[in-house]
C-alpha cells in the first residue's frame, strides 16, 4: 500500500490578518483620541506628588495665567443653569442667541459687560485679541458672582472646584481667588498640577512603600 506523503507544513504564519488588526487599532486610537484643544490661555501648571486625577465631570475651573488674569470655564452640562442664575443675580437678560453662544464658548475671559460680544468670537479671533480676564477685585468681584451662580445652579449636586494656576502667577491673585470661593462657603478645591514622582527616602515615600508592602502580603 502506498502511503500518503506527509506534507511539510510551512512554519511561517500569514501576517496579513495581524497587520490589518494592528493598523485598524492604530487608526481607531488616533481618531478616537481627543485632541488637546489649543487653548487661548497658556498656562504652565506646577508639579506635585499628588497622583489623583483631576475630575473631568461637573467641574468649575478657575484659571490664573501668568499675567494674573482670571478665566473661568465649566462643564458643558451646567453652563445654561449657571448663566440663568447669573442673570437672576445681576438682573441681566440673555436672549436665546446669547445663551447658545455662551454654551459654545470654551471659557469666559471678559467682564460681564462684554460677555455677549466675547462668546460670539471664534477660536481664531480669540487668539488675536488680548483678553481682559474676569474682574476679581473687591469693587467689582465678578468672579465671586460666577461662583455664586455655579453653586446655586448645582445645589444638591457635587461640583468640583478646580484652580489651575500658572507657575509665574503671583500669590495675591491665588489668594483673591480663594477668598472669592470662601465668600461662597466653599473650602475644598482641587489644584491642577502635573504629576511628579515622590522623592525617594522622604516620609511620604516610606509611607507609600509601607502601604504597598502591607497591601501585598495581606
Amino acid at each position: 500500500m502506498a502511503r500518503a506523503k506527509i506534507k511539510r507544513g510551512s512554519t511561517t504564519v500569514d501576517m496579513t490578518a495581524m497587520c490589518d488588526v494592528a493598523f485598524l487599532l492604530l487608526t481607531f486610537f488616533i481618531l478616537a483620541a481627543k485632541f488637546k484643544p489649543s487653548s487661548a490661555i497658556e498656562v504652565t501648571t506646577p508639579s506635585s506628588v499628588s497622583n489623583k486625577h483631576a475630575p473631568q465631570k461637573d467641574y468649575f475651573n478657575v484659571t490664573i495665567n501668568k499675567n494674573n488674569q482670571v478665566f473661568i470655564d465649566m462643564d458643558d452640562g451646567m453652563k445654561e443653569d449657571v448663566l440663568d442664575e447669573l442673570a437672576k443675580e445681576r438682573n441681566l437678560t440673555f436672549s436665546p442667541a446669547d445663551i447658545k453662544a455662551f454654551k459654545q464658548a470654551t471659557f469666559v475671559g471678559v467682564p460681564l459687560s462684554q460677555l455677549n460680544q466675547f462668546t460670539r468670537l471664534d477660536a481664531d479671533q480669540l487668539k488675536k485679541i488680548t483678553l481682559p480676564g474676569v474682574p476679581y477685585d473687591s469693587t467689582n468681584n465678578e468672579l465671586q458672582a460666577w461662583i455664586t451662580a455655579a453653586v446655586n445652579a448645582n445645589l444638591g449636586k457635587k461640583t468640583n472646584f478646580l484652580i489651575k494656576g500658572d507657575d509665574a502667577a503671583k500669590y495675591p491673585t491665588f489668594s483673591a481667588v480663594i477668598d472669592a470661593f470662601k465668600k461662597n462657603d466653599i473650602y475644598k478645591y482641587n489644584l491642577i498640577t502635573n504629576a511628579e514622582d515622590v522623592p525617594p527616602g522622604t516620609e511620604l515615600y516610606k509611607k507609600n512603600m509601607e502601604g504597598k508592602m502591607s497591601g501585598g502580603t495581606k
Binding site: 493598523f23 492604530l26 486610537f29 489623583k52 475644598k188 478645591y189 482641587n190 498640577t193
Partner: peptide, 25 residues
C-alpha cells in the same frame, strides 16, 4: 503597528493632569 499603538496609548494616558486637594479653614 503595535509599537505605534503602544506609544499612543501611553502618551494619551500620561498627559492627564493630576490634582492636589486643598482644604482651607
Amino acid at each position: 503597528g503595535f509599537l505605534l499603538i503602544t506609544f499612543f496609548i501611553f502618551t494619551t494616558t500620561m498627559s492627564q493632569p493630576t490634582s492636589m486637594n486643598l482644604s482651607m479653614p
